[in-house]
């Protein structure tokens, strides 16, 4: 999260609260891409995401006078978007209990390591990708927010409605698991190389 953007966003927020439609359009244009991408982590149904984004901004507009100034507009939108999306998904019974089904984390791991060749890299990436997909959903979401959206642990806690400690734990466990997978793969590759020669 860039610190220099915050004041500007807050200024726009004030304008938006007094009914400046351009400010609403600004927030829409600034965050549509990342909200959309975030939504795709929970469902592949783009119509639901589209619906949710529309609801989010319409609600924002109709309730603008009652809203207080958020410390970060992005965080506020992410959190509100997440709540709306979950409500929608459970209403549509796409997921009866969202925690058990959601999050498809589309992550690539690309390391430019000199010691391994292309084929080995492929094996490694495949294994890491599998490892990533097997992570518990809350760990995946925390990783996504930390490394893709660059939210701090504190901000992740706000968005996901949990504690900073829990977020740290989620990221810690996820990364440790990935690291262990990586070590196993490298050992495996080493032995393969050894026996093939």
């Amino acid at each position: 999260m860039e610190n220099n953007g915050i004041n500007e966003d807050q200024e726009r927020w004030l304008a938006f609260q007094t009914g400046d439609k351009d400010a609403l359009a600004y927030f829409f244009n600034t965050f549509i891409g990342s909200l959309y991408n975030y939504g795709l982590k929970f469902t592949q149904d783009e119509d639901i995401i589209e619906d949710t984004i529309q609801d989010l901004f319409i609600r924002l507009w109709t309730t603008r006078k009652r809203l207080s100034m958020p410390a970060s507009v992005r965080n506020y939108l992410f959190k509100a978007f997440r709540n709306l999306l979950f409500r929608k998904l459970s209403k549509l019974q796409k997921t009866s209990k969202y925690e058990s089904e959601y999050i498809f984390l589309d992550v690539e791991l690309s390391a430019e390591t000199n010691h391994i060749n292309a084929e080995q890299q492929l094996i490694r990436d495949k294994r890491l990708e599998n490892a990533l997909q097997q992570l518990p959903h809350r760990q995946k979401e925390a990783i996504y927010l930390r490394f893709y959206e660059n939210a701090s642990y504190e901000e992740i806690a706000q968005i996901m409605g949990t504690t900073v400690k829990a977020c740290y734990k989620n990221v810690f466990r996820a990364l440790s698991y990935l690291r262990e997978t990586l070590i196993t793969v490298i050992t495996y590759l080493f032995f393969r190389l050894f026996f093939l020669n």
Partner: peptide, 20 residues
């Protein structure tokens, strides 16, 4: 490990954004 992590992005196309 950290520097090798990349995320795939998918943002809505122009016509969808416009429609929304």
């Amino acid at each position: 490990l950290l520097s090798s992590m990349r995320f795939k992005t998918r943002t809505p196309d122009e016509s969808r954004t416009r429609r929304i």
